[in-house]
Design a protein around this nucleic acid. Structure first.
Length: 275
DNA sequence: CGTTGAACCTGTTTGC
DNA sequence: TGCAAACAGGTTCAAC
């Protein structure tokens, strides 16, 4: 569910509501959701949340106590969400972790995830660095045009697969890959190493523009997405191709939006996005 | 090494 | 209406 814009929105809400709060309890309803470091959870009670950052599509919470810092990396998968609520029996179904907080306006952070793709990693600094090095590549909002161009030019596969390859470029998923490629007028199956310099430059600028606009809109709510305070996004109203099969092309070329099922589902205009 | 496809899950929508 | 199949925002691992 959550791609870069949604995770950025989640982090923003968490910062305003939880930064500086101290942890009292951590309830784990399903042990297998903690992928690593389950035995380290005893360290956390009374530690303060001192930093909240997005890495790709994940959220990294920094906890500090007595001059040392440890980390929890939260992966949401397709259906995972975080909610901030008063303590009590809310979201009882599909909530797998509850962090009880002190000194925060609302006192509980929930990890809610019906499909249970996605895990939480409990890590010291050394492991955080290792895990991040293995998982993440360039950030779409921090990468330079030169770095991005280098990545695309040496890629022999489909450009959409490259944009969604988290080890190369971290944060873009199926919705935003489709929306970006349509606006940049590039076919999802075009090969990176065959794109013109002009196309690569247009893709780079479109990518940044779409992601920033989506963040400003609070993300896309197709069905379930909510920020931790329960608010929905609005960028879905600006989607031009995602889930728009058979709609007329928004550029007015007269064609209709097509769908390719290979890999993840791609939505595109066969006329405006040439291979 | 790079790419592809199946597997992991539950819930909702679609089609017969 | 009822039931089965298809499909969904992601990541990982095995196989080629």
């Amino acid at each position: 569910m959550p791609e870069l814009p949604e995770v950025e929105v989640i982090c923003g809400k968490l910062r305003t509501q939880m930064l500086g709060a101290s942890l009292e309890t951590c309830w784990v309803g399903r042990a297998d959701i903690i992928r690593e470091g389950r035995e380290e959870l005893g360290w956390y009670p009374s530690a303060r949340i001192t930093d909240i950052q997005r890495r790709g599509k994940t959220i990294v919470l920094t906890f500090s106590r007595a001059g040392t810092s440890r980390y929890q990396l939260i992966e949401l998968g397709m259906t995972g969400l975080l909610f901030i609520t008063p303590p009590g029996p809310s979201y009882t179904k599909h909530t797998h972790i509850r962090w009880g907080l002190k000194d925060a306006p609302a006192q509980e952070l929930l990890y809610w995830n019906p499909r249970r793709f996605g895990r939480v990693y409990v890590l010291n600094e050394e492991r955080l660095v290792e895990v991040c090095a293995r998982r993440f590549g360039l950030d779409p909002l921090r990468v330079s045009g030169q770095e991005f161009g280098g990545l695309v030019r040496k890629s022999r596969g489909r450009i959409k697969s490259l944009m969604m390859d988290q080890r190369k470029l971290s944060g873009i998923g199926n919705i935003y890959a489709n929306e970006i490629l349509f606006r940049a007028r590039i076919h999802p199956h075009a090969r990176g190493d065959r794109l013109s310099g002009h196309s690569v430059d247009r893709l780079f600028r479109t990518m940044r523009r779409v992601l920033r606009e989506a963040i400003a809109c609070g993300g896309s709510t197709i069905r379930d997405f909510r920020a931790p305070d329960g608010s929905a996004g609005a960028f879905q109203q600006r989607h031009l191709v995602y889930n728009k099969t058979a709609h007329g092309c928004p550029l007015g070329c007269g064609m209709t939006i097509s769908r390719i099922m290979t890999d993840r589902t791609s939505y595109y205009c066969p006329s405006c996005q040439q291979a």
